[in-house]
Computed example of a mutant assay.
Amino acid sequence: MDGLRIGFADGEVVRGVSFDLRAGEVLALVGESGAGKSLTARALLGMLPRRAEVAGRVLLRGRPVTPADLGRRLAWIPQDAMSALSPVHRVEDQLAFAVRAVARVGRGDALAVARRALAGVGLAPDAAAAFPHALSGGMRQRAVIAMALVNNPDLVVADEPTTALDPERQERVLALLRERCAVAGAALLLVSHDLAAVRRHADRVAVTYAGRIVELGPAELVLGRPVAPYTRGLLASLPAAGLSADALPGDGLSADGLPTAGRGEGLPGDGPPGDELPGDRTSEGGTSGGGLPGDRTSEGGTSGGGLPWDGTSGGGLPRRPRLPVLAGAPPAPGAAGAGCAFAPRCPHAGDVCRRTEPAPRAVEGRSVACHDPFGEAA
């Protein structure tokens, strides 16, 4: 993808997005809602609204992408598996339809291919022969993964593919998706808000803000030692990050007021599936390790776990500090204006930031679009 721009009547929403993907690689697009992640993904698939004004190039193995590539060279995994499955056809029949839409094979051969694909994602024969409503959410998502990969595409685009699943199933589905893409040699573009899952499963991460990529590089660098002020603020504002001493250590705010968390070696939720995160309500009505110290309840008392409002925990331990807050809000889609779109929220911002949009440049092993990522001019 080279210089992708997408605009509508009220302004430009995606503003010069560029990246490449290698066979078998997982690239995650992350950022706040409205940053242009899903539009970027849909541009790869040729699924943009007709009213969209598009500029830039999208190439797959050196050739322009066309709508005819969807289902052949390109595959899509949506947020809701039920929206991709017909309620009136058996799961294995739907995969067989997908096979026959691409290859000239008989129904029996297509069914054999479909059943192998479904077995590859762990669906038993009785589940493969069932209607979608008879399957659990995780099983339906596995079926959609099998359907996406059944024709051996070069690129799979997954837009929040685990949104409707519980945390344990989310982890299993993402691990399966990555494994099957690696086996098929397909690149995977993963759109997600779950930064902990992204760190576990992505090779590279592109952090988006107001329609641009502000930081792009290896996942362990971008999420472990972020450079762009927006990325640092985004990571520091994660609830579990602010409450977990070994997840994203830091004192919360630097001397210039920018959140500093995010320089550690882990992300919240990096443990095995099922681990509780700080602040999770337990069956006894308290909170799991870490808790939310000193939070008032609606009744005027304190949160579960016996944490009093006087600033100490039940065991006399000091209250943990409040989470850093990334002040302000992103600009409305299409209303970024001149200069850096993050400047109104950034404590490092200077005159050049408000006048000129920063170009991407190499910083510490990744690409960063920022005039002054370390605040040296502030």
Rank of each mutant, 00 (worst) to 15 (best):
L59Y: 00
S33C: 09
R72W: 04
A81W: 11
A23R: 15
S83T: 15
V54Q: 00
S38T: 15
A43G: 13
S86W: 09
K37C: 05
L45K: 02
V54R: 03
V58I: 15
A55K: 09
L39Q: 03
D20P: 06
S86K: 11
S33L: 07
Q94T: 08
R63L: 15
S33R: 04
E92A: 15
S86G: 10
L95F: 11
G24F: 10
A35V: 09
R100N: 05
L95D: 06
L21T: 05
D69T: 05
R15G: 00
T40K: 12
A43V: 04
A52C: 09
P78E: 14
L95R: 12
G46W: 03
A28E: 10
R100S: 07
H89M: 15
R22Y: 05
V99N: 08
R61H: 14
R50H: 13
P87N: 12
R100I: 13
Q79C: 12
G34E: 10
L29D: 05
R73N: 13
S86I: 00
A96I: 10
Q79S: 11
Q79H: 12
G31I: 08
G36W: 02
S38G: 02
R15P: 00
L29M: 02
R22P: 01
L45V: 02
R51W: 05
Q94L: 04
A28L: 04
R72M: 00
A52D: 08
A81N: 11
F19Y: 14
V26Q: 03
H89V: 06
K37P: 00
G62H: 06
P64Q: 12
S33Y: 11
G16Y: 02
L70R: 07
G36E: 03
G71R: 00
L85R: 12
S18G: 14
T40L: 09
S83R: 15
A41Q: 07
L21S: 06
D80P: 03
E32C: 05
G62Q: 09
G34C: 06
R63C: 03
